[in-house]
Each structure stands twice: as structure tokens, then as C-alpha cells.
Amino acid sequence: KEMRNAYWEIALLPNLNNQQKRAFIRSLYDDPSQSANLLAEAKKLNDAQA
């Protein structure tokens, strides 16, 4: 469930391009235990690109 939530949050971040989203989501599938960390990194990048 945590992975699914992280997937959708990443997919809906407005300032990431599709390539960036795909990279984060690929990492999510590679290591679901890192969901919270990956989401935090994606949000950080999203904010930096705002």
C-alpha cells in the first residue's frame, strides 16, 4: 500500500518531467522498501524545479 501511494504521489508531481517520474517509479519497483525515501527525494526535486 505504501508503494502504491508513493507511486501516485510521484506520478502526480507537477514539476517533474516524464523521464524523471519514470526513473523514480522504476526505483520504487526495484526496492519497494525505499518508498518513503524515494517519495521524499521526488518531492525535493519537484520543489527545486518549481
Score class of each variant (00 low, 15 high):
F24Y: 09
D31V: 06
L12A: 12
I25P: 00
E41S: 08
A48M: 14
D31C: 04
A50T: 07
L16Y: 00
A40D: 12
Y29G: 03
Q20E: 06
L39F: 04
S35Q: 10
Y29E: 05
D30C: 07
N46H: 02
Q19G: 12
S35A: 06
N15T: 04
P32H: 03
Q20V: 05
L45D: 02
I10W: 01
D47P: 01
N37Q: 11
L16Q: 00
S33T: 09
A40M: 14
L38A: 05
L28I: 06
L16R: 00
I10D: 00
A36E: 09
A48E: 08
S27L: 13
A36M: 09
N15K: 06
L38P: 01
L38R: 05
K43C: 03
P14A: 10
M3S: 07
Q20G: 01
Y7L: 13
Q49C: 04
P32S: 04
S27R: 12
R26T: 09
K44Y: 08
S35R: 06
A6S: 07
K1L: 13
F24I: 05
E2H: 07
W8S: 08
N17L: 08
A40K: 13
R4M: 15
D30W: 15
R26P: 00
A36N: 07
N37M: 15
L13Q: 04
L28Y: 03
N37I: 15
L45Y: 04
A42F: 02
K43W: 09
M3I: 15
L39P: 01
A48P: 02
R4K: 14
D30F: 14
D47Q: 14
A23T: 13
R22Q: 12
E41T: 06
L13A: 04
R22E: 10
A50R: 02
Y7I: 15
S27C: 06
D30Q: 15
L45G: 01
I10Q: 00
N46I: 01
E2F: 04
F24N: 00
A11I: 15
A6H: 09
A11T: 15
Q49D: 04
A23N: 10
D47W: 14
A40Y: 10
Q19N: 12
L28N: 01
L38E: 01
K21Q: 02
Q20R: 02
D47T: 11
A40W: 10
Y29W: 04
E41D: 09
K44C: 05
A23R: 14
A42N: 00
N15Q: 05
N17W: 04
L38Q: 04
S27F: 09
K1P: 12
L38C: 04
R4P: 08
N18L: 14
N37D: 06
L12I: 09
A42M: 01
P32F: 12
A6F: 10
A6K: 08
K43P: 00
P32C: 03
W8K: 15
N18Q: 13
R22F: 09
L39G: 02
N18E: 12
L28P: 00
Y29S: 06
S35I: 11
I25K: 02
N5Q: 11
S27E: 09
